[in-house]
Write a protein that binds this DNA or RNA. Structure first.
Length: 546
RNA sequence: GCGCCCGUAGCUCAGUAGGAUAGAGCAACAGACUUCUAAUCUGUGGGUCAGGGGUUCGAAUCCCUUCGGGCGCGCCA
């Protein structure tokens, strides 16, 4: 809808261009004003233009508006400092809706003008323990964003990077063996790097079924590491699946080493003169780029750092030549951004193609009190625990009603409540309610008309709902632009609000006025499809009844 | 100490390439079920947008600064 108006406006500027030097600005806004008296849409184009044209914005607005006619608008006004307000012609709006309804599935799946290949990496948790709630937040944002971008016609590759190399994996193996010994009644002393969660016991039990000799040898630690990693990875994949998150690929860090990518990468950087030796270690001169400190790639003892393999991983990503790379990271990794971007730049790639979304921490509460302990794991609350307790839908919805960079307080009891405290039910209820209207209509022998019609929908509520339906593509494009899936969530809540209000104020099925009934059922039919699509994009199901 | 993020109603949060009189939900209070599902709706009250300064026609939004909170600052991953 915004696009329609924008096109009309650009065309108008074009017309003016022949007589006056008006240049279309790079960016101007078509927005829905907060106040009804300012019309259905308004633009700040005259205000934006006034800067470059050095002219009074109202004067420019007058220029644009005078003798500007279009059937879509019943009225165009200049207001305030120079806003141009558009008042829609209701019958035209209904006509547009009718037009869109003929191919509504297509309307609900608008395509972006330039299709892009997008690589999105998220979650990427260490396979040393089950996913926790914070991972769930990133998983949710990543998967919903992927769904929406895919819907817009982009080619999406979703990847999970497994940090299965390095010391933390060895620590996992050692922890498993020590726990197994302990289970056998031996006295053991854990090192401070050991993982102490209860889940280690589960792994140790499984491990003992296969191995009875528990030496703390390099060989056994490796065995235990691999064993534990695979088990944990299985949990992680299951959790993600149950959470509605699907990846195209799980990329193993270890594999990057085994295939020689990491060595290759270091060699390339060396040849480019990006690496120097100091104190027996190899350093990447990241301060030549965007970092405030140089970074070690190969330690004095010859081991590669985590950073080294991460550079190799990003090199591999960029070799695959995507248009955009999105990384969703926990906020505790923000210090890592400059060095990764430096490496990408140093390797000759365009680091601005990499967008890193920092997802802020999740703090758990129960009835307003902070939850810091978990019986099961000793030190954190797993995604699985909360998922089992509150369910996928409320959890996803809660994560998706916040923008990614604000910290989130997650109250388990609140999210569990089946009240309007919990907007997920509010939105799902809209779907279920429409469903039941259809059911009753059918019982009374009224079917959804084969040819949808809207001409009798003249109520204020109906006008609003129609406007909102037509705004759906705008919302998806906003999500694309800002990389903020929560915009869709808020849109759906708002739509449900309009609907429930409409539902309470008016009856849809009216045996005395079949024509009107048909129009209303037509509207509900579109609304139901829309809400289903919207929730689907958020990874949330639509129950037929509630 | 340095860096990043956050601070909006009692609570949880929207408000995004500067725009018009600051927005929801919850909680509080007062109402609406003989009706297509009350998991709903209608109404009322509630604000120094953390404080201060600046930029300009215009700032919750941009810049500086103070305060408060979170997170980072390894040859850990």
């Amino acid at each position: 809808m915004k696009k329609i108006i924008k096109d009309i406006l650009l065309k108008r500027l074009d017309e003016l261009n022949s007589s006056l030097p008006v240049q279309a600005p790079d960016f101007f806004e078509i927005e829905v004003p907060k106040k009804k008296e300012f019309g259905d849409f308004s633009t700040n184009i005259a205000l934006v233009l006034s800067k470059s044209m050095k002219k009074n914005p109202r004067e420019i607005a007058t220029l644009i508006v005078s003798e500007f006619k279009n059937d879509l608008f019943s009225k165009i006004e200049i207001a305030g400092p120079g806003f141009i307000n558009f008042f829609l012609n209701d019958s035209m709006v209904r006509k547009i809706l009718e037009d869109r309804s003929e191919n509504f599935d297509y309307f609900l799946s608008p395509k972006s003008e330039n299709k892009k290949r997008i690589f999105i990496e998220y979650v990427s948790a260490n396979p040393t323990g089950p996913l926790h709630v914070g991972h769930g937040r990133g998983a949710c944002i990543g998967s919903s964003l992927s769904n929406i971008l895919k819907e817009l016609g982009h080619e999406i590759h979703q990847e999970f990077y497994i940090n299965d190399a390095g010391s933390q994996i060895k620590n996992l193996g050692l922890s498993i063996i020590l726990r197994a010994k302990e289970l056998k009644g031996e006295n053991v002393e854990y090192t401070k790097d050991c993982y102490m969660g209860e889940y280690i016991t589960d792994i140790a039990r499984e491990f003992m079924k296969k191995y009875d000799n528990l030496d703390i040898s390099e060989y056994f630690i490796n065995e235990a590491s691999r064993f534990g990693k695979n088990l944990v990875l299985g949990w992680i994949k299951k959790d993600l699946e149950d959470f509605g998150v699907n990846f195209d690929n799980f990329q193993s860090e270890l594999e990057l080493f085994e295939r020689g990518y990491v060595n290759e990468c270091i060699k390339v950087m060396r040849n480019k003169g990006l690496i120097y030796e100091k104190d027996g270690a190899l350093w990447f001169k990241s301060t030549d780029f965007l970092d405030d400190k140089d970074r070690v790639m190969v330690k004095e003892n010859g081991e590669k750092t985590y950073f080294a393999s991460d550079v190799a991983y990003h090199k591999l990503k960029f070799e695959r030549d995507y248009d955009i790379y999105i990384n969703i990271w926990g906020a505790d990794h923000h210090g890592y951004v400059p060095r990764v971007k430096s490496a990408i730049k140093a390797l000759g790639y365009d680091e601005s193609k990499l967008k890193i979304l920092m997802v802020q921490m999740v703090s758990l509460f129960r009835d307003g009190k902070p939850v810091t302990m978990s019986k099961r794991t000793g030190d954190f609350v797993t995604l699985r625990e909360v998922l089992d307790e509150v369910g996928k839908e409320p959890m996803r919805f809660t994560f998706l009603t916040r923008k990614h960079d604000s910290p989130l307080d997650f109250d388990i009891e609140l999210v569990k409540q089946k009240t309007s405290d919990n907007p997920v039910f509010y939105v799902q209820y809209m779907y279920a309610r429409i469903n039941s209207v259809f059911k009753v209509a059918e019982e009374r022998g009224i079917k959804i008309p084969a040819k949808l019609s809207f001409n009798r929908l003249t109520l204020e509520e109906e006008r609003e709902l129609i406007k909102q339906i037509l705004a759906f593509p705008d919302v998806l494009f906003d999500v694309e632009f800002f990389l903020e899936p929560h915009l869709l969530t808020y849109y759906l809540i708002n739509l449900a609000q309009l609907f429930h209000s409409y539902y309470n104020a008016h009856r849809f099925i009216n045996g005395n006025d079949i024509e009107l009934t048909n129009c209303r059922l037509s509207l509900l039919f579109l609304l139901q499809k829309l809400i289903k699509k919207g929730l689907y994009l958020l990874g949330i199901e639509t129950p037929e009844r509630m």
